[in-house]
Amino acid sequence: MAKNIIVIGATSAIALHACRYWAKENANFFLVARDDLKLSRVKEDLISFGATRVVLHKQDLLDQSAHPRIIEEASKCFDKVDHLLVAHGTLLDQSQVAGNVEMAMSEIHANYLSQVSLLILFSRVFVTQKEGNIGVISSVAGDRGRMSNFVYGSAKGGLSVFCEGLRNYLYHQGVSLTLIKPGMVATPMTQSLNIQSPLLAKPEVVGQEIAKGMSRHRKVIYTPFYWRTVMFIIRHIPSFLFDRLKL
């Protein structure tokens, strides 16, 4: 049977590549994003890859009052949801965010508050059906605050903790949650930061690892895999040393 998949922030490069993996298995999609022109490009791509049915829903995700509508529309499409992927987010330049309260609040809204709202609402759907998998894209940046990205990182850290708790709750309802922590990925979101790093991964690789991990109901995915080790080390550097570094 073809899988039913809901993707929030479906025009992100990582989400697209995860979706291609499921499209090859002829999945059905309900895609949510702010820009309908971009959504229709994604739809054409997924149909090329073999998607059976793709329904688009245009919505600015920062508008919390519109969230219940998303769940309503998605539920009309699918009587059962196999995967929900929450993939939206923003990454602003930390040097600007740190000195600007408004930007910092908007960063936290886009990377934490909006996800919490959507996840609470969607959890009800999954609890009712007593099965399925939720994937949430957090970040390695949420594993330890660093000077280079701690506003974004704190939002992702909050999201990670929220998801750990939600996973614990959903476990007892027969629903799995996959917490996804990508490292640096070469996407339109990161390209303006001009990162030159050998650790910079391709969205193709990350997207595919996410889809595979979610299909196997993995609990935590570091992607690419080496970030698990990198973050293990970073988390365990003693503070007296850590504070001297410029990470």
Partner: peptide, 9 residues
């Protein structure tokens, strides 16, 4: 290189 979507097949 980021314009790498398929339109139809």
């Amino acid at each position: 290189k980021s314009l790498n979507r398929f339109v139809s097949f």
